[in-house]
Design a protein around this nucleic acid. Structure first.
Length: 567
RNA sequence: AGCCCGGUGGUGUAAUGGCAGCACAACGGAUUUUGAUUCCGUUAGUCUGGGUUCAAAUCCCGGCCGGGCUUCCA
């Protein structure tokens, strides 16, 4: 259960500017396109959206919102061999979940007819030709980054022949690979994308939206800019790797004399301990290294959502990282911190014991119990309180007891007194062990005077422990997640290595018998709580009333872990 | 190597010719019925060499380093 409220950090008053927003602001001020702002988010439906896309979504939709413009959702579906409807559905879900609504839902495939007509126009202008060379020939003739390419032998075909061939390509008269349509630009250009780029290839593959109407499909460069232009996109925002394509983007628009969309590029998001490429994410899914696209360890929006991340946290994260042209790598802790920040103010507190150690309160009357008041949020009374049953037998976290505690350990030990959260002070009198010497049970006494957690005589304790009653607690499965990769840069592998070699074998730890306070018995998938002293947890989609399942979204900051590891 | 783009504390960013600021991380302290939160403080930066200027992170030139491009992918 988390409280709905608007996050102050999202107020426009703290609106940061980046170089793209500066450009947009300037264009609006100068009245370019009548001050109209039109952006678009253009995913290819061949995979799930990830946190990197969130950066682009926040930028494109955010700019439209801030400048009174519109943002389209456009599927760049020009390669039917890799694209599926499953992906368009998940993409729409993810964009909406992030909190954005598009103006128009567009598909590059809706423009195939227009694109085809424009291609004929270019042919008629002598600016495009059909190349009948093989894939290998074309590749060889392209040259390298050092050497200019050489013109294809088909480069000077007549307009009539080109038109005839192109029409027959469209009509399905040729097999895959027999011909391509190329723009006639400059085979010696320093910019490789200008060396007579391919506009169409023959692909006898049904398309998820156009069926088998087409057997020629446009390439990215030919489809993308023209789609922008058709939608009268004013600011076409994409990532840095397309920067070198910009001259081609401009060239097509200039030759066609169509709406002059402009392209701007920013650095894509890189996160430590994370891989972001769709190819690699697909590999993780298909290789069953994770349980699917929405595995909570995945950086996909679906995974992150299932993990327990909120749209607000992700939007705040995107605001924090900014937008630049520098390709850096953001610490994963920045993302995690954004979640803590958000959930700290909104998540109700509960108690759960993950690794139970039984405690018997020897001076508490047998067979009795009572209900104690616990605050749902320590800093916000409006969250109210709940009752937590207390009795003679309890569970505490095994980690909260040490038989021979070091000086910096504040928690329970033989002869020590600590507070049980919202309950009483208890003192440990006896440590029960099994034959192997493992601690199986603690015998403690409680001080009835300290009910609620304060001592009338003013004495202090150094620690407050969370706990649950043995009798009334419920059992649950709790999944603890750690980084999917054990190194900051998973792609950094030695010669012959694979990024999967860097997978963290301990990225998922399943606890199937965690003990939860009884109020946690009635929850719904997606509900989020802070388990006090442990972290933020989210009810998984597989959770049932009989067997609740919680995912740990993120731990709390843990100073003790730091102290402990430093020795 | 050729072309394009970048380089500000450990990391991500702000300063757009005029006091180098913010966030995360780290470290120290205060408060605390979560070793959480909150609050205060500390450490730490303009890649490098030259030039222009009263004044350069910012403008110019060279170097160094990093990213991208050499798919009938997007």
């Amino acid at each position: 259960m988390s409280k709905e409220n608007s996050n102050a950090a999202e107020d426009a008053s703290s609106k940061p500017v980046d170089f793209i927003r500066e450009i947009v602001a300037r264009d609006v001020a100068e009245g370019t396109h009548g001050g109209r702002v039109q952006t678009r988010f253009p995913p290819e439906p061949n995979g799930y959206l990830h946190i990197g896309h969130a950066k682009s979504i926040c930028l494109n939709f955010g700019i439209a919102q801030e400048f009174g413009g519109k943002c389209n959702l456009r599927f760049d579906d020009t390669n039917p061999s890799k694209e599926e409807t499953e992906y368009v559905d998940s993409i729409k879900d993810d964009v909406r979940w992030l909190g954005f609504e598009w103006d128009q839902e567009c598909y590059a495939s809706d423009y195939f007819e227009q694109l085809y007509d424009w291609a004929e126009e270019l042919i008629k202008q002598g600016l495009a030709y059909v190349d009948s060379g093989t894939l290998e020939e074309i590749r060889e003739q392209r040259g390298t980054v050092n050497e200019p390419g050489t013109p294809s032998q088909y480069r000077d075909r007549s307009v009539e022949e080109n038109l005839d061939l192109f029409r027959r390509m469209k009509a399905g008269e040729f097999p895959n690979g027999a011909h391509v349509l190329r723009a006639k630009i400059d085979m010696a250009a320093g910019n490789m994308s200008l060396r007579d780029p391919i506009m169409y290839r023959i692909m006898h593959t049904p398309h998820h939206r156009t069926g088998d109407k087409w057997c020629i499909y446009p390439m990215y460069d030919w489809a993308h800019g023209q789609s922008d232009s058709i939608e009268e996109v004013t600011h076409s925002i994409c990532t840095l790797e397309f920067e070198i394509h910009r001259p081609l983007y401009d060239w097509y628009i200039a030759q066609l004399r169509i709406f002059p969309s402009r392209q701007y590029e920013f650095a894509r998001l890189n996160l430590t301990y994370t891989v972001m490429s769709k190819r690699r994410l697909l590999e993780l899914v298909q290789g069953k290294h994770v349980a699917g696209w929405d595995d909570p360890r995945m950086p996909t929006l679906a995974g992150i959502r299932r993990r327990g991340y909120t749209p607000e946290a992700i939007r705040n994260f995107c605001r924090t990282i900014g937008v630049t042209k520098y390709s850096g790598t953001t610490d994963l802790s920045v993302l995690e911190n954004a979640l803590r920040d958000d959930l700290n103010t909104r998540a109700e507190r509960r108690m759960a014991v993950l690794d139970p150690l039984k405690v018997v309160i020897t001076n508490y009357p047998e067979g009795e119990s009572e209900e104690l008041d616990a605050a749902n949020h320590p800093a916000d009374e409006s969250f109210g309180t709940r009752k937590v049953p207390f009795g003679r037998e309890l569970y505490i976290e095994r980690e909260d007891f040490m038989e021979d505690p070091p000086k910096k350990f504040f928690r329970l030990g033989p002869g020590r007194e600590v507070r049980l959260r919202y309950a009483y002070f208890v003192r440990c009198n006896e440590v029960i062990k099994d034959a192997d010497g493992n601690v199986t049970e603690l015998h403690c006494t409680y001080d009835p005077e300290t009910k609620g957690g304060n001592a009338p005589d003013g004495r202090k304790v150094k620690a407050t422990l969370h706990w649950v009653p043995v009798e009334q607690s419920i059992e649950a499965e709790v999944r603890l997640y750690d980084h999917l990769f054990r190194v900051e840069n998973p792609s950094d592998v030695p010669e012959g290595g694979d990024f999967k070699d860097n997978l963290n074998p301990e990225s998922l730890q399943i606890i199937d018998n965690a003990k939860l306070e009884p109020t946690l018995g009635n929850v719904n998938p997606g509900d989020k709580f802070q388990f006090e002293r442990l972290g933020y947890f989210c009810v998984d989609k597989t959770s049932t009333a009989e067997k609740p399942v919680f995912n740990r979204a993120v731990t709390l900051k843990d100073t003790w872990q730091k102290v402990k590891s430093k020795g």
